[in-house]
Design a protein around this nucleic acid. Sequence first.
DNA 1: AAGTGGGACAACCGCAGTATA
DNA 2: ATATACTGCGGTTGTCCCACT
Length: 342
Amino acid sequence: MGRPPCCDKVGVKKGPWTPEEDIILVSYIQEHGPGNWRAVPTNTGLLRCSKSCRLRWTNYLRPGIKRGNFTDHEEKMIIHLQALLGNRWAAIASYLPQRTDNDIKNYWNTHLKKKLKKLQTGLDGQNRDGFSSFQPTITKGQWERRLQTDIHTAKKALCEALSLDDTKPSTSCLSELKASNGYYSLTRPSQATQSSTTYASSTENISRLLEGWMANAPKPAQTNSETTQCSFNNVVGTDSSSEECTPRAANNNEMVSQGAFDSLFALDSSTPDVSPSMSIDESTQFQSETNFFQDESKPTFEPPVPFSILEKWLFDESLIGQGHAEALNIQQISLEDNVNLF
DNA sequence: AAGTGGGACAACCGCAGTATA
DNA sequence: ATATACTGCGGTTGTCCCACT
């Protein structure tokens, strides 16, 4: 028996979301929190299906999302993780907490696939990055087998990706992820500029509407649409770095009250520094204490269990030679598990 | 200046897994 | 144990925008 549609198809609006709808959805979630999506259209009067509301929130409106150009580091992470995990975008996204699976999937399909294909034809037969058997397109199940055969090379490659910046310790990428979760900018200035303009087109209207909506904010609202945009982008965690927007706006005394947005999302976008030296567990705890939206809607930096294991595994492997029994155990367990898969 | 093709990305569709009554 | 409801996920499509002719 087929599952009925998630909502009555009649009278359900489709297509791009309007700023007005966004505001309705955001304000509802601010009040009730994400979840129980079934009730959202009913309670808000939105003529959208619950699924559409959830997707809009998780892929677009949820705070902490970074939009715009992918950094080289992110790109490499995706490439290596895709090689390791296949098209499991949600799993890959869990390693890039500020990116949505949809974003990563789109980026892979529009950029990386071509890029790798080009690279592959260019090198034609040569091993690249240690991925002797890497193929841009793989069928379901193939990745599992490849995971077995290439487990070591993939690990190595991922390890490289995780420590791309040679000047940093091997946990550098982890630190960056954490920092970016606190709305630090990961992008190069040029990228930030470009990406924010991309997003501006879709947020400008929302920002304008928010001006009126935020009339009760503690501080006077700004008149400068650019600063409005920056502020909103900060809230939704877009690519506009706070470093880029805030000081300029503050100088002009035009910046919209950050506190207003903070209260809107019950989330301090200027979250206290997540120390780069903070452990994964600490970071996780910090997140869960400060960001209920993210916890609810997406495994943002939920310590992907696999991640900690993977990281530990990667780091420990380098110590195997030094006789780390634990590392060996992890490796053994992994290999045993792999065998059991067949 | 207008038309066209391709790229980028938001959104939808449908299946699978899980929760609940 | 079963049916139904809900959520998550990956694949695909539709639309907008921009560069090129």
